[in-house]
Amino acid sequence: MTSLVPLPTALEIRQHNAITTARYEMTACEMDIVFYLLSLLKKEDNIGTFYRVKVTELQQLTGRQWNYQQFFDATSALRSREYIIKNEKERRTLQVGLLASAEYLHGQGVIELEVSEKMRPYLIDLKRNFTSFRLQAAFNLSSKYAKRVYQMASQWKDKPSITYSLHDFKVMLNLKDPEGKEPEQYSKVSMLQRKVLDVAVQQINQHTDLQLRYELLKKGRAFESVRFFIQAQLPEQLPLPFEQPLDEAREQKARQHLRDLDIKDAGLVGRILSNQDLVNDLFGFVYKLKTGKIKATTNAGGLFLKTAGLLKK
């Protein structure tokens, strides 16, 4: 018997390290879907559970707009794209896809996802070997390389530093084929720094609970490895409070939006939060602001109050 799972209730995504270090390539849209899916998974879920991704919810969380074709391409790729997970101890290599199925419920703005059963143990079995990372932080990163490096850094966030050979690092980001059958991307270290490392570190430091810096290490005259230095920090973005009831979580997120818009008048704040239509207007305004549908170079808060009919004439 199948069952449906509602919106996220866990504060952190937890992901088995075998997945974190597996070799795979995803677009930013695919990663956003996967992060959302991971937040829905529960250890006690039955085989055959379907997970509902609400498109508008995902877009509001990320501040990014994905059209239908992008979603369709993303779920199609997630069904066909494989993880390669090596178990050296048992001398086994698993090739597996993440999704068994994806079904679009037209008119409802919902995508129902089914996880491949071979993948489920790596996502659900969290007793010892897992990575945890904040959902909001993962969503705030726009670069696919930043998302990937954040996963990797989160795996080692209790250590002061971690070193990867450039070969292993590029393999995990799918920039290099370990068998050498495909051309290597960013073969020049300067390009790897500019296109991957610098972008990832800048976004992670700005939007997440981690502070990173890196150094490139040489062997002889050639660069051989990259060392990441990892520190915890208070994130600039308030993490989504998924452990709280959804009504309370929505109110807290709305309060954060009002603070970001510099709307601090207690009377206005109370009026907005007590009116669900105004709260909906607020979320819609912030979403349009983030996606460029609304332009407000100065006084975005005043523009919201004006459009919501809250400014005194």
Rank of each mutant, 00 (worst) to 15 (best):
C29P: 01
C29T: 13
C29H: 07
C29L: 07
E30A: 00
E30R: 00
E30D: 09
M31F: 13
M31V: 00
M31S: 09
I33H: 07
V34T: 10
V34E: 07
F35M: 07
Y36G: 01
Y36I: 07
Y36S: 12
Y36P: 01
L37Y: 03
L37C: 09
L37S: 08
L37V: 10
L38A: 05
L38K: 10
S39D: 07
S39N: 14
S39R: 00
S39Q: 01
L40W: 06
L40H: 05
L40E: 10
L40K: 13
L40S: 05
L40T: 09
L40C: 10
L40V: 11
L41R: 07
L41D: 02
K42A: 13
K42S: 14
K42G: 12
K42Y: 02
K43E: 13
K43P: 03
K43S: 11
K43R: 15
E44P: 00
E44D: 15
E44W: 10
E44H: 14
D45M: 06
D45I: 03
D45Q: 12
D45R: 11
D45W: 08
N46I: 12
N46A: 14
N46T: 12
N46R: 13
I47H: 10
I47W: 07
G48E: 08
G48V: 06
G48T: 08
T49K: 07
T49C: 09
F50A: 10
F50P: 00
Y51T: 04
Y51K: 00
Y51C: 05
R52D: 05
R52H: 02
R52L: 03
R52A: 13
R52G: 01
V53T: 13
V53K: 05
K54V: 11
V55F: 02
V55M: 13
V55D: 10
V55Y: 03
V55N: 07
T56W: 01
T56G: 01
T56V: 10
T56P: 00
E57K: 11
E57D: 15
E57S: 12
L58I: 13
L58A: 08
L58N: 04
Q59F: 13
Q60W: 02
Q60S: 07
Q60T: 07
